[in-house]
Design a protein around this nucleic acid. Structure first.
Length: 266
DNA sequence: ATGGTTGCTTGGCAA
């Protein structure tokens, strides 16, 4: 079972790139973030033409929006409204996969604005509050019981080698100590396994996002690992492979995030 | 230290 997570930054604009990716890589399940369209505007027929006929979507006009698209039947479990702001930032499904069912959660955590100070930046306060609520929910609802995968753009690069320069980014939103601490709380709440780091040692650089604000993203390679795949302990021995498709950052009119795919023996 | 780009919209946020 191959599961891909990809912050697409407008699914309608980038549908040709999504189609190419699906033709070339054929994941079983695709989790998108920042679809940026209402549910009625979602490009269902483009996915159906590629053999992806099952959907669980949570969209809104212009901002945010998450979607799970599958080649196999899925059951919509929930679209949870963290922080009760009406943002479309979560969707979860159950996948009947022969034996024990698999649960997939797809998240788009708030980016948090520019200033890492809750006193002056309500967007940063929202981000930290969102992470607190995630950790509470994981414990209270026993989210990691059974075979569970949590993917998405979590907008935090927690490890030193999840960013191009630990020192330069300590006060930059996405890598500040308070955010890293909150994300660690989310990890421990499971506990979850950081699936990507099972395949790439923690002392090696690993990025999934490169800013648009660089003339040539390949020259300085100033990336961050903002996208994550977490699995419950029941899936620990099922982790088979990881693929971070760096080349997608160089496609025509790319997203600033690249697809990340995990292969599970389930 | 600053400014750099993109998308949704058409002025100015959000990222």
């Amino acid at each position: 079972m191959k599961i891909t997570t990809w912050n697409i930054n407008s699914v309608r604009l980038r549908m040709p790139l999504v189609a190419q990716f699906l033709k070339d890589h054929r994941p079983d399940i695709l989790c998108l973030q920042e679809t940026k369209c209402r549910n009625a505007e979602f490009p269902f027929s483009d996915f159906r033409a590629l053999g992806y006929e099952h959907f669980a979507i949570n969209g809104q006009k212009g901002y945010h929006g998450v979607a799970i698209i599958s080649r196999h039947p899925i059951e919509l479990l929930e679209t949870r409204d963290f922080c009760e702001k009406g943002d479309a930032r979560h969707v979860s499904v159950g996948v009947a996969n022969g034996g024990a069912p698999l649960v997939v959660h797809n998240f788009y955590v708030p980016a948090g604005g520019d200033e890492p100070d809750v006193e002056i930046n309500p967007k940063f306060a929202h981000k930290l509050g969102f992470l607190d609520e995630m950790a509470e929910w994981i414990v209270r609802d026993r989210i990691t019981d059974g075979r569970v995968v949590l993917v998405g753009d979590l907008n935090i690069a927690p490890l030193e080698h999840d960013v191009w320069s630990h020192k330069a980014l300590l006060q930059v939103v996405s890598h500040t100590p308070i955010e890293v601490e909150k994300l660690d709380d989310v990890f421990r709440a499971g506990p979850w396994i950081d699936a990507m780091r099972r395949f790439v040692p923690r002392d090696e650089k690993l990025y999934t996002w490169w800013s648009y604000r660089a003339s040539d993203w390949t020259k300085s390679d100033r990336g961050r690992r903002l996208d994550h795949i977490l699995v419950s302990e029941a899936l620990s021995n099922a982790l088979e492979n990881l693929s971070v498709l760096r080349e997608a950052r160089s496609w025509t009119r790319p997203s600033d995030h690249v697809p990340v795919t995990i292969s599970l023996a389930v």
